[in-house]
Design a protein around this nucleic acid. Structure first.
Length: 114
DNA sequence: TGGGTGACCATAG
DNA sequence: ACTATGGCCACCC
């Protein structure tokens, strides 16, 4: 079968992101690791770049980097949209960084059955 | 074939 | 807090 590998990967990433509870966040590396780490966390970010064009909405604002920084904010319709969406869910963001990151962090490896 | 880039990560200093 | 380095892997010249 000549399946488009990256499209499968995209869908897997999107599915995990959709499972992130409201008010919680995760990071790129954890998603990559949960999916088997065959592809690095860079590929997760690459997948997120295509998230906006999905028919089913993907809460991309709930995915940040390992430091809880909103490194992807410039890829949203507005650079402030990511922070606004997070704060609307009760996540505090100061200077592009999530506050109390440990408390809101959601790791698919721990929260989902494997 | 090879270099540059990227919504990343880990380690070192 | 910062930079530098190596790994990662797909994409685009």
């Amino acid at each position: 079968m000549n399946l488009e590998k990256h499209e499968d990967f995209f869908q897997m990433v999107f599915q995990v992101v959709r499972l992130i509870p409201k008010g919680r966040v995760t990071n790129y590396g954890s998603i990559a690791k949960y999916l088997g780490a065959a592809r690095s966390s860079r590929m997760v970010g690459w997948a997120m770049n295509a998230a906006h064009s999905q028919k089913k909405k993907v809460p991309a604002h709930r995915v940040v980097n390992r430091n809880g920084e909103l490194t992807g904010k410039h890829h949203f319709a507005s650079p402030f949209l990511m922070q606004e969406l997070l704060e609307k869910e009760g996540v505090k963001v100061v200077n592009d960084k999530i506050q109390n990151f440990d408390a809101v962090f959601w790791d698919p490896i721990n929260e989902l059955e494997m």
